[in-house]
């Protein structure tokens, strides 16, 4: 791949790859924008940038991640995702074959989720100005009728529900990057959550206060964020949090706290206590929510702490981290 002058043919080549992979009526129309009709109601829009290393990992790649990520950001507002856009910053010299793999998996992800990518852009930058490829996706969706989720809506005694095991994505990416090998293959949990959300909404929508996908920073970051936005605290129970044994083993070996490890196909819901059972039951009926669990509850706390009852007894404050997990013990 080269950037600059000899560009026209190259640009057509690249755009061809994406058009073929994403193929739909809007892209075929060949406009610089895409028009679509909306029904009445509240809309949501979300955008996200994707920079991951490595670009390919067990269970997905940067492309599927970008599609799932934006779908999930929309779904967390209890909205049905409708359309996506995708924009690519590609480093000069990046193999076209890799680009095609990424584009294809985005196409598959978007078709499987039934959320088309209807507009996009590509830019090639000088070698060293990017790391392989960066993807930016945006999306719009329509909020399910009667629902209005807000980050500051958590109230003391509310239930905290987690849709499944934590740490899969982060550990998959890390083992790939560090060339670790384990008996059991660990794959990313990257997945679109909007159909799970639709079932939850149907079962107990009015009880749902808010939802979040615990991506970067893991469950710890998500709960801390909600705690400070809602000005409440959380009490969670270590033993109630689902984690795959192989993921737990890697975390133990590498000394990682799985609570700080990223997920790409999980959600946390805070719900009124009276709706928790119905929501949990609906989640467990969905393939992405089979292991859904009640992991704790909201408490009044002027410090907005997330506290976890540990398996040793006692409660520790679960912190969000500014970066990688560093030692603390002197």
């Amino acid at each position: 791949l080269s950037h600059g002058a000899g560009g026209r043919a190259m640009r057509q080549l690249i755009e061809g790859i994406f058009h073929e992979a994403f193929d739909n009526e809007w892209l075929r129309a060949g406009n610089d924008q895409s028009a679509f009709a909306v029904s009445g109601g509240r809309m949501v829009m979300s955008t996200d940038g994707y920079v991951v290393s490595p670009l390919f990992f067990p269970g997905g790649n940067i492309g599927s991640l970008a599609v799932h990520g934006t779908i999930n950001d929309i779904a967390m507002a209890a909205a049905r995702p409708l359309y996506l856009s995708a924009s690519f910053i590609i480093e000069e010299g990046f193999p076209l074959a890799d680009l095609k793999r990424i584009a294809d998996s985005m196409g598959v992800a978007s078709r499987e989720a039934a959320v088309p990518i209807i507009t996009g852009d590509t830019k090639v930058v000088e070698r060293g100005k990017a790391d392989g490829v960066f993807i930016s996706t945006a999306g719009v969706g329509r909020v399910l009728d009667g629902l209005d989720l807000r980050a500051d809506a958590a109230r003391p005694r509310d239930a905290v529900i987690l849709s499944g095991s934590i740490g899969d994505h982060g550990v998959a990416v890390m083992s790939n990057r560090e060339n670790l090998q384990f008996d059991a293959a660990i794959v990313s949990d990257s997945a679109p959550l909007h159909t799970l959300v639709a079932m939850m909404a149907e079962a107990g929508g009015r009880h749902i206060r808010l939802m979040r996908d615990p991506t970067r920073g893991g469950l710890a970051a998500t709960l801390n964020e909600v705690a400070s936005q809602s000005k409440v605290g959380f009490h969670i129970d270590e033993e109630a949090i689902p984690i795959k044994p192989e993921v737990a083993a890697v975390c133990e070996l590498l000394g990682l706290d799985p609570l700080n490890v990223a997920n790409e196909g999980k959600l946390v819901a805070v719900a009124a206590p009276e709706g928790a059972e119905a929501i949990l039951a609906a989640m467990r009926a969905h393939p992405l929510g089979r292991e859904a669990a009640l992991i704790g509850h909201v408490v009044a706390d002027d410090y907005c702490f997330v506290q976890m009852a540990t398996s040793f007894g006692g409660r520790r404050v679960v912190d969000w981290l500014t970066g990688e997990q560093l030692p603390r013990i002197c």
Binding site: L254, G255, P327, I329
Partner: peptide, 10 residues
């Protein structure tokens, strides 16, 4: 090498 951060300290 510090294999496992705080785990290594424990």
């Amino acid at each position: 090498p510090l294999p496992g951060g705080d785990r290594a300290a424990r």
